[in-house]
Simulated scan of single mutants.
Amino acid sequence: MNLAIKSVKAIPAYIPVNLAVGPVDVETALSCVVIEITTEDGVVGHGFTAITDEEVIAGIISELVEPNIVSLNSLNREHIAERLYWLLSPRGQTGYASHVVSAVDLALWDILGKVVDQPCWRLLGGARNEVPLYVTFGFGSFDRDQLSDAAKHLKNDGVERFKMVVGHHALKKRNDGASVRAIIDEDIQRVRIVREAIGDCDLFIDANCSLDASSARYLADRLRDYNVTFFEEPLRDNDVKRMRDLREQTGMRTAAGQNEGQLFRFRDLLEAGAVDVIQPNVAICGGLTAGAKVAALAQAHNVTMANGGAFPFHNMHLHAGMANGGLVEWHLISVEMCRALYGNLPDRVGSTITLPEKPGLGFVADADALRDFASRPTSHGVGKG
């Protein structure tokens, strides 16, 4: 069988999403890139990345990656990952390169699974065929009433773990004259409303790296009575030292890692004691190959691992495959986006999802949908969520 790479195609997409959660209905959009790698014998693997600028990623793949990996054996994932490191980030840079590598690596794992007729989660180790979920629902576009209504609807649907956004790009808005304190004071009321709606269920909050250390501590101190399970990405830049300080000063558990793209960044977070939960995202950190290495680091440091940054249908394979796999994020907007791109996606049942037995990633890219989205305008920087 000739498994040499014949072609690499990148499809940028900016996807409108209608999010309906019980009585709550909002319109939004997210961007992504789907990559299609075809071998000489016609085996096709699909990869994916997001929370980035789709125009840039597609250009890098077309102009740099394809000429440098065509003819290589698609099963030689470590060799290809190392080649892409020296091509795209030879001095340890983070950024767009890790998104590109993630998309390529996921496509290569998809090919491997199809060649050996096994799902990726089993090839990674097959620790379990079902993973627990938490549901990200509390978006900044929801007002207080919508937050409460959506939370109650999801709880009635069997959801046990809830995540909501705080911070709301506070430091970015401060640059345009907004008051960070006013944003945080509103967050306190929003968290109170969600806690009242979900009762004793787990509640996670996520600032998306949008606060400084003082503001994050102010918020954490005032949320003590609401029993927050963890505070995700509380600080700008995932500041390792200040995040450790925040843990020690407030006693609130911290989580980070979903937007990291180099292995040394995960090492630094773990060695510094900056996080209680490390969150590699295989659509960003370097794919399943890098995700498995982060899982090993987490196990060696005795730190819990969970999926952050959405895209459960790719990340579920890591957490089902590895013995120390943990929670997978059922991010409602990203789920709807993926449903627009793929067929045969599994669905959640309450707060769990069962992994597919189909080979590779276990779902099929919709060729007609990809052509449609590729023909539409791109996001021009506003599709990262």
Rank of each mutant, 00 (worst) to 15 (best):
L3M: 08
A4Q: 13
A4E: 12
A4M: 10
I5V: 06
K6L: 14
S7Q: 11
K9A: 13
K9W: 06
A13L: 11
A13T: 06
A13P: 02
I15Y: 10
N18P: 00
D25I: 10
A29M: 03
V33N: 01
V34N: 00
F48Y: 15
V56P: 01
E63A: 15
V65W: 01
E66S: 15
L75H: 01
N76R: 13
N76P: 00
R83K: 15
Y85T: 14
Y85D: 14
L87K: 03
R91A: 15
Q93R: 10
Q93T: 03
T94C: 11
V100T: 07
V104K: 01
L106A: 08
D110I: 12
L123W: 03
G125T: 01
R128G: 01
F137G: 00
F137N: 01
F139R: 02
F139T: 03
Q146D: 13
L147D: 00
L147Y: 08
L147G: 02
S148E: 14
S148D: 05
A150S: 14
A151V: 09
K152R: 15
N156I: 11
D157L: 14
G158Y: 04
R161A: 14
F162W: 04
K172N: 12
R174Y: 09
R174V: 02
G177R: 07
G177H: 05
V180C: 06
A182G: 06
D185G: 05
D185V: 13
E196R: 13
A197H: 05
A197F: 09
I198L: 04
I198P: 00
G199C: 11
D200S: 15
C201F: 05
L203T: 05
F204W: 08
C209L: 08
L211D: 01
A213Y: 14
A213G: 10
Y218I: 10
Y218A: 05
D221T: 12
F230E: 03
E233D: 15
E233K: 07
P234A: 10
P234Q: 08
R236A: 13
D237A: 13
V240W: 09
L246W: 06
R247V: 15
R247N: 05
Q249N: 13
T254S: 11
T254W: 04
A256F: 08
G257E: 08
N259D: 11
F266L: 10
D268H: 12
E271R: 15
V277S: 04
P280V: 04
V282L: 07
A283Y: 00
G287A: 10
G291V: 08
A295V: 02
L297F: 11
V303W: 03
T304P: 00
N307E: 12
G309I: 07
A310D: 02
P312D: 04
H314D: 12
L318P: 03
M322G: 00
A323D: 11
A323N: 05
G325V: 08
E329K: 06
H331C: 11
H331A: 11
H331R: 02
I333L: 13
I333P: 03
A340R: 15
V349G: 10
S351F: 09
T352E: 04
T352Y: 07
T354W: 00
P359L: 04
G362P: 04
F363C: 07
A365F: 08
A367N: 09
D368F: 02
L370V: 06
P377Q: 09
S379Q: 07
K384V: 15
K384N: 11
G385Q: 02
